[in-house]
Amino acid sequence: MLRYRRLSTGKENFLSLGPYPDITLADARRSATAARSLVREGIDPVEHRRAEATGRKRAAEGAFHLVAQSWLDFKRTEWADEAYRKAEFVVREYLTPALRNKPISTLATPEVKPVLEAIASHAPNLATKARQYVGGIVTYAIQNGLREDGAALTLRGVVPRHKKGHIPAITKPADIGPLALAIDAYRSPIIRAALKLTMLTGLRPGVVAAVPWDEMNLKTAEWHVAAERMKMRHDHIVPLPKQAIAVSKELRAVMSNSELFQTPGFEVIRDVAVRRIRAGINLRVIRSGPGNTRDLWRSSKRDLRELRFSPADFEVGITTYLYDDTVAFISSRAEHYALSIQSAEFFAFECILFEVLWNTSMPDQSDKPA
């Protein structure tokens, strides 16, 4: 132990030089000499040691992408699934690629400003959310000792204001009919069905868009929304009118490759892939010749995915998914139907066919590095 007096208070204080015999006498003397030098310079050696420990912690844990992931994990317990999905998407697709290894302890407004401006150039609403998320990440870093207290960013006004169109509310019964007809004429079957379900149930669009089918009981005509998906964190039961049941049955029968990438969108498809990768599930894909699959589902060790191209005289006309004991077919030509069959025998039969085609298919030569 080294005894010294603090210059700020004049009170006696002690500095541990390390445990004996782990620390030799020579090492203890060198540490004591260095501490006395700090005292002569007006530096408290205990505070100096704490500052060094904080610096090491910030260097090890303070990269933006690490802090952002810790913040997401922390917020997940209090957010609804849709709120977490949106935040995780913005952090993963926009913020982390631009700010990945920047230290959160010194992250400055001029570094974040161009990132938000780039997002705002094509997705103004996401830019506003991204600004909120960056503020939350910085606050989380301050609360966990990764950034100096009070060192907040000045991001208000960074995101340019975008002109919003006027979307008038329908307040007259006579206007409901034209709205229903407009919804019924919407081209995308999935968006059309989501709009109808929103209108018929009064639920929030985010709740409707992320509905798992097991929440809907078509026999009892009830929709049991789980508490974690509701804003107030309470279970919610919605009676389903016959029109909503009809929409639900129609929606379950519509899905295709084009719809997957247009609605609900590529980010949702990517979320599914992320969950598969985290679970360590490998995916083998057979596609028609490389000419029509240039950028789609290429082989990637990082993404646990292997692609092969079918023989030249064999064109894949129907997309087939094999998982557990289920075989799912999706039309690749007509783009308007899907069929799911749960049968252990049929699954085993399809697996044999897949292996035969796999062994005669050509490996993808542009494997991405892990």
Score class of each variant (00 low, 15 high):
4 Y>L: 05
5 R>Q: 02
5 R>V: 02
7 L>S: 10
7 L>D: 06
13 N>V: 04
19 P>H: 02
23 I>A: 08
24 T>Y: 01
28 A>W: 04
29 R>H: 05
29 R>I: 03
37 S>P: 01
40 R>I: 05
42 G>H: 02
45 P>L: 03
49 R>N: 12
51 A>G: 08
52 E>W: 01
53 A>Y: 03
58 R>K: 03
61 E>F: 01
67 V>E: 01
68 A>W: 00
68 A>R: 01
68 A>G: 07
69 Q>S: 03
69 Q>F: 00
70 S>T: 02
75 K>T: 09
79 W>A: 07
79 W>K: 07
79 W>V: 05
80 A>Q: 11
97 P>S: 10
107 L>T: 02
110 P>C: 05
113 K>C: 03
119 I>Q: 07
120 A>E: 06
125 N>L: 06
127 A>Y: 03
127 A>S: 08
133 Y>T: 00
136 G>K: 04
142 I>E: 12
143 Q>A: 13
144 N>M: 03
149 D>M: 09
150 G>C: 09
155 L>D: 04
159 V>L: 08
160 P>H: 09
164 K>D: 12
166 H>N: 13
172 K>H: 14
176 I>P: 12
179 L>K: 12
186 Y>N: 13
190 I>G: 12
196 K>H: 14
199 M>Y: 15
200 L>C: 08
204 R>P: 11
212 P>I: 04
216 M>N: 01
218 L>M: 15
227 A>T: 11
231 K>P: 08
232 M>G: 07
234 H>M: 13
236 H>I: 04
239 P>M: 10
244 A>N: 10
248 S>H: 02
249 K>E: 14
252 R>V: 06
257 N>G: 13
257 N>W: 11
259 E>F: 05
260 L>V: 14
262 Q>F: 07
263 T>P: 01
264 P>G: 10
267 E>R: 07
268 V>N: 08
271 D>L: 06
276 R>C: 04
277 I>D: 05
278 R>T: 04
279 A>S: 14
284 R>L: 08
286 I>K: 06
286 I>N: 08
289 G>D: 15
289 G>H: 14
290 P>N: 12
293 T>S: 15
296 L>W: 15
298 R>V: 14
299 S>N: 08
300 S>T: 07
303 D>H: 11
307 L>V: 11
310 S>P: 12
311 P>Y: 14
313 D>E: 15
313 D>Q: 14
315 E>T: 15
319 T>D: 08
325 D>E: 15
326 T>C: 14
329 F>G: 01
334 A>F: 00
334 A>H: 06
335 E>D: 14
335 E>P: 00
336 H>W: 04
337 Y>E: 12
338 A>I: 09
341 I>E: 05
342 Q>S: 11
343 S>Y: 09
344 A>K: 14
345 E>D: 14
347 F>D: 07
353 L>R: 13
362 M>F: 09
369 P>H: 00
369 P>C: 00
